[in-house]
């Protein structure tokens, strides 16, 4: 697939480095995947054998549906989505750059602390937005 998204090299380098750090430093992280809003993975670190392309596609759908929900409810632009389960959680963090709209996905098991993951994913989003 030839993708229209061409993120600057420094952005890609930051993304690869930071995803690796999130994966290494946050206990319980199973996968972190940076994806385009139409569901293509552009950078990822996966520990559990998950398919990044599949995570990217699912995150794209969930983000789009959550955007419609937030618009219908007049809640403004969706910032993130959390799927909290009995054995972990998934966080989908929206990232809006001038040149691309992206979604960062973090999949974590029950050992992870939600607030910790939210802090890291939102910090990643802020950094990537301004880079």
């Amino acid at each position: 697939m030839d993708n229209k998204i061409r993120l600057p090299e420094k952005v890609m380098a930051f993304a690869h480095l930071e995803l690796q750090k999130i994966s290494d430093e946050v206990e319980g992280i199973k996968a972190v995947v940076l994806a385009t809003e139409d569901g293509f993975d552009v950078a990822s670190v996966v520990r559990d054998g998950s398919d990044p392309s599949r995570i990217a596609a699912m995150a794209s759908s969930i983000s789009a549906i959550s955007t419609v929900v937030s618009e219908e409810a007049n809640l403004g632009q969706s910032k993130n989505i959390i799927i909290n389960t009995v054995s972990g959680f998934a966080v989908m963090q929206s990232i809006v750059r001038d040149d691309a709209r992206l979604v960062l996905n973090a999949i974590a098991n029950e050992k992870a602390v939600l607030a910790h993951v939210l802090y890291r994913t939102s910090h990643f989003a802020n950094s990537l937005t301004t880079l």
Binding site: N3, K4, E37, D38, G39, S61, V68, E72, R101
Partner: peptide, 22 residues
């Protein structure tokens, strides 16, 4: 209609936007 389309980044498909949800 409820539409969940986003910007299409797939160059193999000549389309500006594409549905990713429903």
């Amino acid at each position: 209609p409820i539409v969940t389309d986003v910007a299409n980044t797939d160059l193999s498909l000549g389309k500006e936007r594409t549905t990713v949800g429903l």
